[in-house]
Design a protein around this nucleic acid. Structure first.
Lengths: 224, 224
DNA sequence: CAAGCGTGTGACGCGTTTGTGACGGGATTA
DNA sequence: TAATCCCGTCACAAACGCGTCACACGCTTG
């Protein structure tokens, strides 16, 4: 069984229990100014707060990179707000990517799973644009023409899957499988509701409707 | 053992060896302006650089599509930077998708595996062109010279069937059978209505009228 | 030129599919 | 623990697709 070790700064690290999902075990631990409290086998994921009580997040980030025990960890910086300059600084300090907080367990797991499934390749497409739509895998955020689209986790996964298969009719079954929802079996009509919610979210960010209904078949993400 | 043949433009094609992974053999070869150096059996994947020494990537992409030996290949365009307009152009030139480079072997394999596992049922002919008309089977969408034609399912099937039998008179019966409508029996006059609707749809996308009536016989899809 | 076909097309109505507000259970957060 | 959020399902109304009809127009034939 795969194990993924997740380290978090601040309170969050304390409050989370270990967790199993999809044959994979996740361990959570607190990340202090000296790094992780215990050393572990397997992939490590560190989420570093931008502001911390004892230490600036940037400094911790540099220390993690400098320490051979944690140099290989995947480091995600947690920002309070979406500031371009902060992002640059985070990446320069050695972070692999960033999220705009606040961080919940769901957000953490979503990220870890998303990045894992995209493969170990660090420079894989983490971000892609389709027309006016930008999907940023690293920040788990989508934008329409620079306006952020407020998406719930399921909606983001849906959008991602659709956008990864553009110009191709996806049946409701495809979509259910694509989001990895085999158990419990999902009513196909539910997909319509997903689509409706996703459309509304895109629309309320001022976006168009790239999701075309193909009657009696499914849906397509349409590119220009 | 499955074999997947991967063709790459530029240096990358030279530097990679054949490779085995998960019961599957991958062969790598260089892709020049004239297409692949050697011809192969089995699925083909071409990764085309946006910029190439001898030839623009877009042009190569079009050539691959036009060449019957490579028309069925899955073509991925490799972009240097994230430009929305370039993406559109790539897809319009016949690329199936795109990545933002730089490309490594890992990135290539990840992508091929991901696409293979998703699109298990790749239709034989994903897309074909007849003059200004393009028919995209995967997206169930037709375009006249880059303008989408709004078609209902039945109209799409009709257009597809006509386009698959160009320059050949199809009787109303042929058309009814071609669309697989045996039950319940369809009035032949209904075909006239189908044709009329299809013509209108093409026209309102700015297209011409490739559908010629052959009095007392049926209809022809006219090429040239 | 008249009569007779063959075709184009607007209109209609039925059956099906889709969109969506509402609800409730379950998980998460504070 | 209470409050909130997320999400799957349901039910109903609206939208849609499509086959048919009916009539007008045009072409053919005598």
């Amino acid at each position: 069984m795969d194990v993924v070790n997740i380290f978090l700064t601040g309170e969050l690290g304390e409050s989370l229990d270990d967790f199993v999902h999809d044959q994979r075990r996740f361990t959570f631990d607190r990340l202090g100014p000296e790094g992780p409290r215990r050393l572990v086998e397997g992939p490590m994921w560190a989420f570093v707060d931008w502001v911390m009580p004892e230490l600036a997040g940037l400094e911790l980030c540099r220390r993690l990179r400098a320490d051979p025990r944690t140099a290989e960890a995947h480091v995600t910086m947690v920002l309070d707000e979406d500031d371009a300059e902060d992002r640059r600084r985070a990446l320069r300090a050695g972070a692999d990517d960033y999220v705009v907080g606040p961080l919940t367990r769901t957000a953490v797991l979503d990220r870890v799973l998303a990045l894992q499934s995209r493969g170990a390749e660090r420079t894989a497409t983490r971000r892609f644009e389709l027309g006016e739509l930008t999907i940023d895998m690293a920040a788990l955020q989508a934008r329409w023409d620079a306006t952020p689209i407020v998406l719930r986790p399921n909606e983001f996964r849906l959008l991602r899957f659709l956008a990864e298969n553009p110009n191709r009719v996806l049946t409701r079954e495809d979509l259910i499988n694509g989001l990895g929802k085999r158990e419990p079996p999902i009513d196909e009509r539910t997909v319509d509701v997903w689509i409706g919610r996703l459309r509304r979210a895109i629309k309320s960010a001022g976006g168009g409707n790239p999701l075309r209904t193909v009657r009696s078949l499914g849906y397509v993400f349409d590119l220009g």
